[in-house]
Each structure stands twice: as structure tokens, then as C-alpha cells.
Amino acid sequence: MALVEVDRLVKHFSRGGGLFQPASVVRAVDDVSFAIEAGETFGLVGESGSGKSTTGRAMLRLLEPTSGAVRFQGEDVLQFSRARMRAARREMQMVFQDPYSSLNPRMRAVDIVEEPLVIHRIGTAAARRAKVADLFTLVGLDPAHLARYPHEFSGGQRQRIGLARALALEPKFIIADEPVSALDVSIQAQVINLLMDLQQRLQLTYLFIAHDLRLVRHICTRVAVMYLGKIVEMGETERLFATPQHPYTRALLSAVPVLDPDAPRLRVELDPASFNRDAPLRDVGDRHYAAV
């Protein structure tokens, strides 16, 4: 059984709706379904406005979905009571994109990492402090810097603090929303290596939300491509990158800059008229699905 199953998830935002104007509905996530197996890194890719981040947030109920189901270990978390949901969040954590805005600047690193343990009333104060020091070491930070404030750390170190905080409750599943896109290339590699090491050591399952296709290809076992709120293609990473079926996937992959100045540029322009936006995902063989 899959660890996480997203089943026909929908998130609509209504906009406007004044005295003389009917409300308009933005279908940010429009009937999205996928399943993530334990231990895998599932990539959710797409451009801004594709609904990939909204999908991630709706899965953890940081935004309330409009409809659908998100089954974690077989149970639909969208039906959970507040108390039950809070308990469930111990198993499902999130790492955010911007390590500059996602950490409280007035809190010391030690308090940021300890906070989830306090909220969930885990351990004695002394045990928690020891745990935080262990977490610091785990993510490659120096426990001597525990009392520092976020601004005293570099971007890469801040993302490690965010990761330590996410790991404090020993979750099984982590949603990483663009975890390295705010970092410099050389630092990105450090954090990506750390994410891969931790996955092995702690048997973590990742939903990796990203726009960087090179990165996604590198670390994801399977990928779903989102376009305007829908998954247009999904499959095993190598297969999907090698034989993209959907016109949008083809355009997206062809737009990635190649490091070889002599490589032929085979840019594929997207013609929105060339496909039916409401086409359902269809099995094209070998666990590869495309809305064509």
C-alpha cells in the first residue's frame, strides 16, 4: 500500500464577488490524484501558478482543500478532527522554500528546533535540549551555535535549521517545497546531499516540489508534471524525461538550458490549442501516464 494517496484533490479559491460582480473561481488544484510509496522521492514539478505548492499545502491542511481525499497510511487526513490532525502532523512535516522568511527572526535556533517537541509535549526539558543538539549534528550544524539567531546563519545553514525542525518529531513523510531554490548552486548541492543522506538513514518519504527539472531528475524516483492545476503527465523519472508524452512536458523539458554550448537547441513551443485540457490521464505503459 502507498504511504500517501492523494485522491481527486481539489482546491478552489474564490475571488472578487462584490455587489455587482459575481465571484470568480480559480481552480488552483483541479482534480489531482497520485500515490507515493514509502521510501520514495516523488517529484511535483511545474511552473508558477501550476498549483504544485497549493497541492502540498492542501495535503497537510495548511490550506483546507475544497474536496477530495488525502490518505496517509490508509486514513483520510481531511476527515480528521483538529486534535487528530495535530497528532497526524507528527508524521507529516514540511520544509519551506525561503529559509529567510520561514524562521522566526526573534527566536534562537535552539528554540526554533525545539518548538515542535514543546507543542507536542515530548520529553522533559533536558531530554528535549539533548534531542535538539542531536538534530543539529544530524543536519550538519555545529551544536555550539544553538543559541544563535537565524540572521547569524547563512542561507544553507538556515535551511538546515528548517530541516532539523521538521525532523524533530521523527516524521515518516516530508513535503519539501522548493527547499533549495533560494540557495546558491554550491550550497544547493550540500542541502540536496543532506536530504538524500537523511532519507537513507531515517527511511523518509519525500514529496519534492520544485521547478528545477535538473534537480528533480537527479533525486526523484517518480515525477508528476502539473499545468494549470492538473497533472498532465506522471511516471518514473527516467522514463518521463526520456519519452515525454504530453505537449506541455515536452515544452518544459526542452526549455531547460543545456550546459554544452554546442548542443543543438531543440526548443519546443507550447501550443495550448494542441491538447485538450480536460483529457484524463491515460496509461501509456510501464506506470507512465499522460493526459493525451
Binding site: 547563512s154 554550491s186 540536496i192 538524500m196 528545477d212 535538473r214 550546459l259
Partner: peptide, 23 residues
Amino acid sequence: QGLLASIPGARAGSRLQAIEGVV
């Protein structure tokens, strides 16, 4: 060399060659 090596793409699933430390 380090900048080029830290770009993902060489071998899927392998460790990236990070430049340790910070600017």
C-alpha cells in the same frame, strides 16, 4: 570546477559534488 560539478545531472541518484563551506 566545483560550480560545474555541483550542478545536478551527471548521474541520477548519486551524491552531488558540493563545494563545502560558504562564500
